[in-house]
Write a protein that binds this DNA or RNA. Structure first.
Length: 430
RNA sequence: GGAGAGGUGACCGAGCUGGCUGAAGGUGCACGCCUGGAAAGCGUGUGUAUCCUAACCGGGUACCGAGGGUUCGAAUCCCUCCUUCUCCGCCA
């Protein structure tokens, strides 16, 4: 959520930001509503003040045994008026709020302008895309042939876009989760958390999934509860509506959770394999920081995600999302795209495997996450960041495709061997 | 699922036979005094939001889990919901 004062005082900056996002937004009703709100508020508060004073007098008169009948009669009318005005006021306030919660964050000045993902800015590349002297297979073929992935039976159990890992496949997924969590907690200083996978409406609104993107979520029937699309949601909300001490910043959380997404509007895209599932595993990183450090924390978060890929010896590139591709709550986002040699019929392709974003105070304002500096009175909003570290299912897929052998077996990256009980290769079960 | 007890400021804890209580008292914290230094002691201060204002100076208003209601007036009475705890039942 953007600060209403910022909008009023710097309307051009805000308008400009929305234009960069290709969002057409008319602010006149907002401005009018806010003016009306102030007028109304002033009137109501005057009346309340009057009532408070007179009510005091009534108490005194009654105590002295006098008759306060006419004053009471007057105040009855005043209270009626207050009630009426209050009603209009809350209608207006609701309208203002409804407007503000659907307004996206303003893109950072460093973010390139563009319409869609084709205009994202290339930042860097790491590692050489692997070349094979045979035709690289996509991970779904490798996985099914090895008997470690079974999409057909998953579809029987639930439906399309659900994964079923078997045997060494399930073990590899678990190995990746443990490996990532270990690195982030031991080497990168994150606190491990295991949050609820189901959250309420307030929590979803805090991080920005609601009210605008309800169709992307799975909702529990008969409840105001939703399955999380990412653990960013529960983790960022840990300190919602609290004023925390400056000394705990930057506050760094990591978690493994499954993620649930309806993938509405993506019919026909990535229909095969682990790339786009209704349920997938992810290790997520979340940071709460002071405003002045959030951008350097974004860089280090990106580095934390990159580190996982480097250790796994997976080639990747980094891009900065352009304004048209930027998420609702983010002001700046880096995407890490891993090289997947089995995609595009063996031609290979970079696919998103992590997304690291700085949301500034956008989420903090919605969720009410503030901190107090040592010698300052007023609490300030923290800055929130989130990043995948990494999407586990896609990492699994990338390993299969990058470490495949001519015979269809898959070499386990060295760092994962201990997590696989010493096993170095996944091959057809003998 | 059944029975009961709570949710007050950073924390503990009064108030809950409605009115001078934004809220006693204590702890903590901050600053000052005291001291060779420290402890103890003493003094002062110490919520958030919003509006008026040049102002985080001053003033108004609101907030005692959330939302409604009764009343001239509610932390205090009534209703609904959320939540915590205890006991019983059930269950991974």
């Amino acid at each position: 959520m953007l600060d209403l004062k910022l909008i009023k005082n710097n309307l051009e900056i805000v308008k400009n930001g929305m234009e960069k996002r290709r969002a057409k937004i008319d602010f006149t009703s907002l401005i009018n509503n806010d003016d009306e709100r102030k007028t109304l508020l002033l009137e109501i508060e005057k009346l309340r003040h009057k009532r408070n004073v007179v009510t005091d007098d009534i108490a005194k008169i009654k105590k002295a045994g006098g008759d306060a009948g006419s004053l009471i009669e007057q105040m009855r009318a005043v209270s009626e008026t207050i009630k009426k005005l209050d009603k209009t006021l809350s209608t207006i306030e609701e309208a203002i709020h409804d407007f503000l919660v659907t307004l996206p964050n303003i893109p950072h000045e460093d973010v390139p302008e563009g319409l869609d993902d084709t205009e994202n800015r290339f930042e860097k590349t790491h590692g050489e895309p692997k070349k094979f002297d045979f035709k690289a297979k996509p991970h779904w073929e490798l996985g099914e042939d090895l008997g470690i992935l079974d999409f057909t039976r998953a579809a029987k159990i639930t439906g399309a876009r659900f994964p079923l890992y078997l045997g060494k496949g399930a073990r590899l997924e678990r190995a990746l989760i443990n490996f990532m969590l270990d690195i982030h907690t031991s080497d990168h200083g994150y606190t491990e958390t295991l949050p609820p996978f189901i959250v309420n409406k307030t929590t979803m609104t805090g991080t920005g999934q609601l009210p605008k993107f309800e169709e992307d979520l799975f909702k529990l029937e008969g409840w105001d509860y939703y399955l999380i699309p990412t653990s960013e949601v529960p983790m960022t909300n840990i300190y919602a509506n609290e004023i925390i001490d400056e000394s705990i910043l930057p506050c760094k959380f990591t978690a493994y959770t499954p993620c649930f997404r309806s993938e509405a509007g993506s019919y026909g895209r990535d229909t095969r394999g682990l790339i786009r599932q209704h349920q997938f595993n992810k290790v997520e990183m979340v940071k709460l920081t002071t405003p002045e450090t959030s951008f350097e924390e974004l860089e280090s978060m990106l580095a934390n995600a990159e580190k996982i890929l480097q250790l796994l010896e997976l080639p990747y590139q980094v891009v900065t999302l352009c304004t048209g591709d930027l998420g609702f709550a983010a002001t700046k986002t880096y995407d890490i795209e891993v090289w997947m040699p089995g995609q595009d019929d063996g031609g290979g392709k970079y696919r998103e495997i992590s997304s690291c974003s700085n949301c500034l105070d956008f989420q903090a304002r919605r969720a009410g996450i503030r901190f107090r500096r040592k010698d300052k009175k007023k609490p300030e909003y923290v800055h929130t960041l989130n990043g995948s570290g990494l999407a586990v299912g896609r990492t699994f897929a990338a390993i299969l495709e990058n470490f495949q052998q001519a015979d269809g077996s898959v070499i386990i990256p060295d760092v994962l061997v201990p997590y696989m009980g010493g096993q170095k290769v996944i091959q057809h079960d003998a």
